[in-house]
């Protein structure tokens, strides 16, 4: 009897062991065939299938894009997985997170700038004209009583747009003055959303969500996407007090397909990709000679004097976020 038990159960145990070993050995064959690379991007990056097909035709390299959350989440995931990277290249790390990438030696060589965007306040022109109210002209306006309860911003802890604006306020009001600006914003009933999508598409009155807030933290390019039947944009950007986000691509240090990955980074600078960037991602191409879409030229000029270019966001992020959270927490 005992023998029969032990045999039965040993068999069960052996089966489990086999499953476990099988599971482990499956992981051993995860590496890709030669000309296939994985590129990790943040959630807002769009590289169309036809562009990837062109790249394949030119180089014979197949590209697998994977989205890994917002810029911060993506960068931190790359840090946490750098021992065996989840990808061969990254596209979309911006200047606020480039420092994290370098400090953790994520990148083989250096990052290449691909596109940029200006984080600016947007306002709903229709709302301001129907309410016969003066439109905001700088970030200083937001603390004035007439703009009370009109603004929706993004949480800098969760949103790169929010962090960019926080950096702009540090640049504008100084290391000792920005907290009082934010206190004034809080007293002026500003709404804080977790992400840009919530703020722009749900709470902003000038976009598809038709929300209750006529001022939103978005991009200088956003008005190009709100052109109505009359050929005019319903919204406009406040071009003073903007923060410039530059997005980079780079080859990941742990990749075993670095040459192929580098070709992809070069491809992102090609004319066809650069021309597609505005419509696909609402960013400006980094190659200045690239022709912009017509609506962009008309409704979405970039900021002339963006703020905060000299700030070390990476070094200050924790301190800023802590102080910001103390105000809004």
């Amino acid at each position: 009897m005992t023998n029969s038990i032990s045999r039965k159960f040993s068999r069960a145990a052996a089966l489990m062991a086999t499953i476990a070993i099988g599971a482990i050995s499956l992981t051993g064959c995860a590496s890709k065939p030669t000309h296939e690379i994985t590129v990790v991007v943040h959630d807002s990056v769009v590289v169309s299938k036809s562009l990837l097909n062109d790249f394949y035709k030119q180089t014979g390299i197949t590209v697998d894009l994977i989205k890994a959350g917002d810029v911060g989440t993506m960068t931190n995931k790359l840090v946490l997985t750098k021992d065996s990277p989840i990808a061969d290249a990254v596209y979309g790390i911006d200047n606020t997170f480039a420092g994290v990438a370098y400090a953790n030696k994520l990148i083989d060589g250096s990052l290449t700038a691909i596109d940029f965007g200006d984080v600016c306040l947007n306002y709903d022109k229709t709302w301001f004209s129907t309410h016969e109210q003066k439109v905001p002209t700088s970030i200083d306006d937001l603390t004035k009583p007439e703009f009370s309860g009109l603004t929706v911003l993004e949480n800098p802890n969760d949103s790169s747009t929010g962090l960019a604006f926080l950096a702009a306020t540090v640049a504008r009001f100084g290391a000792n003055g920005w907290q009082s600006y934010w206190n004034a914003l809080k007293n002026n009933n500003v709404k804080i959303d977790s992400g840009w999508e919530d703020a722009y598409y749900t709470d902003f009155s000038g976009s598809s969500g038709k929300g209750a807030y006529p001022i939103v933290l978005s991009y200088s390019s956003s008005p190009a996407d709100e052109v109505r039947a009359d050929g005019q944009s319903q919204t406009a950007a406040v071009l003073s007090g903007c923060y410039r986000q530059t997005e980079y691509a780079g080859v990941l240090a742990g990749s075993s397909h670095r040459a192929d990955a580098a070709k992809f980074v070069q491809f992102l600078l090609s004319d066809e990709v650069q021309q597609a960037i505005p419509e696909a991602m609402y960013m400006y191409p980094i190659v200045t000679s690239t022709k912009l879409p017509e609506r962009w030229a008309q409704f979405a000029p970039a900021a002339k004097l963006p703020l905060g270019g000299n700030l070390d966001v990476n070094a200050n992020r924790a301190t800023w976020l802590k102080a910001w959270t103390a105000i809004f927490g």
Binding site: A23, T27, A30, L80, T81, D83, S84
Partner: peptide, 21 residues
Amino acid sequence: GFGYLVSFGSGPLPLRSSWMV
């Protein structure tokens, strides 16, 4: 989840890169 990211990234048990994780 984070424990898995840290422990099974590489080394003897590179589970993290497997769908079995």
